[in-house]
Amino acid sequence: MTGSFWDFLLWIFWFYILFACIWIFITIIIDLFRDHTLNGWAKAGWVIFLVIFPFLAALIYLIARGRGMAQRELERRGQAQSETNDYIRSVAGTSSPAGEIESAKKLLDSGAITQAEYDTLKAKALA
């Protein structure tokens, strides 16, 4: 065996650093293209700056635009949550008493519930 345990830990550390850097660069590029306040030239300038001086550009971007980055992410998550809620409401529909009674009648006709259970469901729907 040519390596040692400490060499292994050092390689894991450097792999972690590489992964974190790649993650930060991807996050910055995604934020750049989601930001509607920047024009195309500004976005191109940031991308070129990230390619030429990646660590310096990432540090400057996070300092200069970090707060806006967080706000855009919160807005995006809020919008996604609201779209999810709207979708759930549209799929679930509004349950009216007539719809509940109709569903209970179908269950009664199929033999899934008894007449007493049907009467209970109908009373609940009308209450």
Rank of each mutant, 00 (worst) to 15 (best):
T114K: 04
I26N: 07
A98Q: 14
F49T: 06
L108I: 06
Y118I: 02
G40E: 09
I30D: 10
M1T: 08
I22T: 11
L107S: 12
I52D: 01
A104V: 06
R89P: 00
I52Q: 02
F13I: 10
V51S: 09
W46S: 05
L38F: 13
D7E: 15
A57I: 01
I101K: 08
L107M: 15
G78V: 04
F25L: 12
F53W: 12
G40V: 05
I88P: 03
L56I: 10
N85H: 09
A112M: 10
S103K: 15
S90I: 04
E83A: 14
A44E: 02
I60S: 03
D35P: 00
G93D: 02
R89Q: 08
E83G: 01
L107N: 07
E117Q: 15
G78L: 14
F5R: 03
H36P: 00
V51I: 15
L10N: 11
H36F: 02
K105L: 15
G40Q: 07
I17Y: 11
A57Q: 01
K43M: 05
K43Q: 07
I48M: 14
K105F: 12
F8P: 00
T114D: 02
I29F: 02
F55M: 08
P54K: 03
E117I: 01
D109M: 10
L59W: 07
I29L: 06
L9T: 05
R65E: 13
E117S: 03
G45D: 08
F53K: 12
F8V: 11
E102W: 06
F49Y: 14
F13E: 07
F19N: 10
G93T: 02
A70V: 14
S110H: 10
H36G: 03
F5E: 07
S82H: 12
R89D: 12
A98L: 13
L108M: 07
W23A: 11
A116W: 00
G68E: 12
C21E: 13
L108F: 12
P54Y: 05
S110E: 15
S95Y: 03
G68N: 12
E117K: 08
F15R: 03
H36N: 08
F13R: 06
T94A: 05
D119W: 02
K105E: 15
F49P: 01
G3M: 11
L50D: 08
T84G: 09
D31K: 06
L108V: 07
I24Q: 05
C21L: 14
L74V: 13
E102Q: 15
G99C: 04
L107V: 06
R67F: 14
S96N: 04
E117F: 02
A64V: 13
L74P: 02
A123R: 03
L56S: 02
F25M: 08
Q81K: 14
S4D: 09
A112L: 11
Y87F: 14
L74T: 12
W14A: 09
T27P: 00
E83C: 05
E117D: 09
A112N: 06
I52Y: 04
W6Q: 12
I113S: 02
E73C: 05
A98R: 09
C21Q: 13
F19C: 08
M1P: 07
R72M: 09
L59M: 02
Y16W: 13
A64M: 13
I88K: 09
G99I: 10
A92V: 03
G3C: 04
K124A: 06
W6N: 07
L121W: 03
G78Y: 08
L18M: 12
W11G: 07
A112P: 00
L126W: 00
I113F: 03
D119S: 05
L56H: 02
